[in-house]
Simulated scan of single mutants.
Amino acid sequence: MEPFIVDVHKWTDTNYEIGRKQLQSITDKSSYLVFLNSLTSSEVDWEEGTSLLENFAPHLIEEIKGLGDQLNLSYQEAFRYFSGYDLPKLGALGCSSIVTTEMLIRNYDFSPDVYDYKFAVKNSENAYSTCGYTVHCTGLHEGVNEHGLAIALHFVNNHNQQKGFMSTMITRMVLDTCKNLEEAVDLLKALPHAACYNYSLGDTNGNIAIIEGSPERVVIRRGQQAVTCTNHFLEMNEYNRKIETSTHKRKSVLEESLHSQDDLFDIFTTPGKGLFYQDYKDFFGTLHTFSYDFNLRRVKTKVAQGDETLEFSLDRLTNDEPLPLSKLKGYIEEREGAKE
């Protein structure tokens, strides 16, 4: 077993300063840049990408500038590393979720080798306040904003990947700029998608949906009481991977698991119940569980096999109260998994 520790942050500042603060703890900048360089391409069209950000989320340009200045990078270099635009293909990942009119709950499954180890509240004047697990500082795996709009991403395929934003940056832009499901749907239709992902969403008005996003088109699948989501499309099935055993298996488990937030949280976080995976070496291990209760306005999250759970009211996104924990501690235990 290996310790697995995630830092918990709350940043209230300008987007530029939030960018700088995210990297203040980096002591070995050279090694960090080598890591970022391994995940990105030097051929990124930063001018086109910047134009898109200016149109959809201009505040993120300031955050990228802050990140770059903290590492002594030019804006072009910082854009390459932190914009989530026109990135090379990454390995396949898992992710399972349930969205009902009462809650969203999901597991994020991938490798700890490509992970920020940060859960953050970001509160700035030029975007809605959000919380979630960060990706390359600017992106989000999932999260909820001050209006109670919640979203999670789910990898489907990247074989036909094209120039556009990665799902993690799309998730961030949705939470930063949208109040409800309808606004999120409009944005998801307008943004250029680099690869095929599902997005599970819900809002405080009881609206829930799964968005199937690809570089060519976007399909909306609305739900009335509950929707479940894993790593395959139901409508655009021509984009699915050929081997999908695990994603269908997890979807069956989800459809039999419609309980309260606390009961579901136990199912998602406990090995052996069909949703917690431990095949970390093959990029298919559960790293964290995130949930949001729309009625109670309660965030509840936990890292892999952690002893402590971070719980707080949505009001903490915008008020001066600190979050209850400064770290989430768990551990990674490799076992034989059931990857796709």
Rank of each mutant, 00 (worst) to 15 (best):
I98F: 01
Q76Y: 08
N157H: 09
L87P: 01
T40R: 11
P322M: 07
K29I: 03
S38G: 07
Q305W: 06
D45C: 09
V44H: 02
R221C: 15
Y197T: 00
E48T: 09
E77A: 07
I105F: 01
R172A: 09
K122D: 05
N72F: 14
K29P: 02
K273V: 12
G272C: 15
D262H: 00
K251W: 07
G202L: 07
G164V: 02
S200G: 03
E244D: 12
D186H: 12
T101G: 02
L149V: 07
E142Y: 07
L275S: 03
I210S: 03
C196K: 02
I211V: 13
H154I: 00
G49N: 02
S25G: 04
T318F: 11
K273G: 11
E48M: 09
I211E: 03
V8M: 05
S260L: 00
F35C: 03
D282I: 06
F276K: 10
N180Q: 02
G202M: 08
M166N: 09
R217I: 12
S214H: 07
I98A: 00
D69M: 13
D266W: 00
A152R: 02
D262C: 00
Q22V: 09
A304F: 04
Y128E: 07
G19F: 14
N240V: 09
T286M: 08
L90N: 10
E43T: 15
V253R: 07
C178R: 04
A57H: 14
C137F: 15
I64P: 13
D279W: 11
T138P: 12
E308W: 07
Q24R: 15
P58D: 03
N157T: 05
R241V: 12
Y292R: 05
E244Y: 10
K21F: 13
V219N: 15
H259T: 00
P271W: 12
I98Y: 00
K281G: 15
G66P: 15
E2K: 14
L234D: 05
N207D: 10
R222P: 06
E235Q: 06
G206R: 00
S326R: 14
K179H: 11
A57L: 10
R250C: 10
L254Y: 13
V44T: 15
D13P: 01
E311F: 01
A338V: 11
E311Q: 12
T130G: 04
R250P: 15
P271L: 13
F283K: 11
P215W: 11
Q24N: 14
P112M: 09
L264M: 14
A127S: 12
G49Y: 05
K21A: 12
V156P: 04
T228M: 08
P88K: 14
F119E: 03
H232C: 02
V144N: 05
K163P: 02
D109E: 11
K122H: 09
N15I: 06
E235D: 06
E216V: 13
N157C: 10
I267N: 00
P324M: 08
P3V: 02
L140N: 02
Q224L: 13
G148V: 00
E102Q: 01
S200D: 10
H288T: 08
F4H: 06
S41H: 12
I151P: 01
N198R: 04
G274T: 14
G213Y: 06
L181K: 03
L87S: 02
S96V: 01
L234C: 03
